[in-house]
């Protein structure tokens, strides 16, 4: 198999995930796009590991080991990320990352959020 096929597919999937991360508003959809990017990297790792295990003399199968590690870390990341998103949604009532502007610079207080400081403090202690 031509090595360019999996490489091109993984590049396209990565850029699809990049678009999703930049363009989506809901935090869970952003997490989905992050999963797409991680999967693109996994496809690259597997393809190059298969190529190297045939082309080189002896390899450590590092590509496949790293793929397993990436899948595991992605599962841990999605668990922690969803817990954080649910905590934010429980405290703020929204999961839209456009409206979570507590740490944004260059803008005044948004004013539409009553108890902003208290909610931010509660969010901080909930995530601590």
């Amino acid at each position: 198999m031509h090595l360019a096929y999996p490489a091109v597919l993984s590049a396209l999937l990565f850029c699809t995930g990049l678009y999703g991360v930049l363009a989506r508003r809901n935090a869970i959809l952003v997490l989905m796009s992050v999963e797409l990017m991680l999967n693109a990297v996994n496809l690259n790792l597997v393809a190059f590991d298969v190529w190297l295990s045939k082309a080189a003399r002896d390899t450590l199968h590092s590509g496949q080991a790293l793929t397993l590690f990436t899948i595991t870390i992605a599962a841990a990341e999605i668990g922690i990320g969803l817990a954080i998103v649910l905590a934010v949604h429980r405290n703020r009532g929204t999961a839209d990352i456009d409206r979570l502007r507590d740490t944004a610079e260059g803008h005044g207080p948004d004013g539409d959020d009553d108890g902003d400081a208290a909610a931010a403090a509660k969010k901080a202690e909930a995530s601590a």
Partner: peptide, 11 residues
């Protein structure tokens, strides 16, 4: 560059 699928399965 080509992937050679001959021989035992790599994965």
């Amino acid at each position: 560059t080509w992937i050679d699928f001959g021989g035992a399965a790599a994965g």
